[in-house]
């Protein structure tokens, strides 16, 4: 068990390297960059939802805070993006701390409502503070990223940048999950009262995870802003928050690889469904419902179960009794 994560990471690195060098077309790189950014969002939210058992319907606001902070600092005030990055992440974390303090006292749907309200307020601020954010028409002229002579302009270089970050966050998440904190988190997920009874400071823990997931979302926002070089409030609205939650649940909660799968599916699905033109929404809705009905534990666990089931059957057929 303990030796396992490195293997996963090696496979992951190989897969990224392979795709990175096999694919030629810029379009696929751009698509995969978006997948990577969405994976980051799903990873952060997954920590909150899958491990701490808290829902957030307002995470797009943190995504937006990351994007707008770096946009304003770099384009308006001429900061270097690398100086803007810590500011963006810190600001999002600070906001998450302040908002989380009262909001995380709520539970269940009330927590959903509280975070939703926060997300809406964030969206309204992005839209209405037009002297700073450019308002509804959006913010133009965000500079692309550069490290010394290397400019992350082409699809491939940005692809590697984003997926390196994704790998970093995956490792961070796994570390967190396997730590003492992670165990305490899972105990909150199972029963908050019980974990409080055995001495876990549930509030502080929940807050810490909330701040962590907000910071990851802000990082994703940073990457988004410098990739597209344009942002507008529409990208960070309520539906964006819902999409993030959907990615986590569809992929499979409480699983790092599930978040990856969910982000993959929900980003690529609309691209495949273009063929349906008018029926795109209908098919998309049906697939969403279908996945949840057939695999209520998400794609990752679900596929695992199917795989296991098939293995057991072959084991039985080949005469292997008492397999377990």
């Amino acid at each position: 068990m303990r030796r396992l994560p490195p293997i996963g990471h090696i496979i992951f690195i190989l897969a990224v390297l392979l795709t990175g060098f096999l694919i030629e077309n810029t379009y696929y790189f751009q698509l995969l960059v978006f997948v990577g950014i969405h994976t980051l969002l799903a990873l952060g939210l997954n920590m909150l939802m899958g491990y701490a058992g808290q829902i957030s319907l307002g995470h797009a606001a943190f995504y937006g805070i990351g994007a707008y902070t770096t946009a304003i600092l770099t384009a308006t005030y001429g900061f270097s993006p690398w100086a803007a990055l810590p500011c963006a992440v810190l600001l999002a974390s600070a906001v998450a701390y302040v908002v989380g303090l009262p909001t995380l006292k709520l539970s269940g749907y009330y927590l959903g409502m509280g975070t939703l309200g926060f997300g809406m307020i964030g969206f309204i601020v992005f839209r209405e503070w037009s002297s700073l954010t450019g308002g509804s028409s959006g913010f133009v002229g965000i500079p692309p990223l550069e490290i010394g002579p290397v400019s992350f302009y082409s699809g491939r270089s940005y692809f590697f940048l984003v997926w390196t970050v994704v790998l970093g966050i995956i490792i961070l998440c796994r570390r967190l999950i396997d730590s003492r904190t992670g165990r305490a988190l899972r105990s909150i997920h199972d029963s908050e009262k019980a974990s409080r009874a055995i001495g876990v400071d549930t509030m502080a823990l929940k807050l810490r995870v909330f701040v962590f997931s907000a910071a990851v979302a802000a990082l994703a926002g940073f990457l988004y802003a410098h990739f597209v070089t344009f942002i507008s409030p529409g990208t960070f609205d309520f539906l964006a928050s819902v999409r993030m939650v959907t990615m986590v649940v569809i992929g499979g909660m409480a699983s790092v690889w599930g978040a990856l799968l969910g982000a993959f599916l929900l980003t690529l699905l609309p691209e495949w469904l273009h063929a349906f033109s008018e029926f795109e929404m209908v098919v998309y809705g049906l697939i969403l419902m279908g996945v949840m009905i057939v695999l209520p534990r998400g794609l990752f666990r679900g596929l695992l179960d199917v795989f296991e089931g098939a293995r057991e059957q072959t084991a039985k057929r080949s005469g292997g009794v008492n397999g377990r």
């Binding site: 649940v249 929404m281 209908v282 809705g285 969403l288 419902m289 949840m292």
Partner: peptide, 28 residues
């Protein structure tokens, strides 16, 4: 009804799917 393990969050996502589906049907 067909969901085997009706956890709240799974049902919520199903309703999100249904909302997209219904909107698509209405659009057509």
């Amino acid at each position: 009804r067909t969901v085997r393990k009706p956890q709240p969050i799974v049902l919520v996502i199903i309703t999100v799917g249904a909302s997209i589906f219904l909107r698509g049907v209405a659009m057509i």
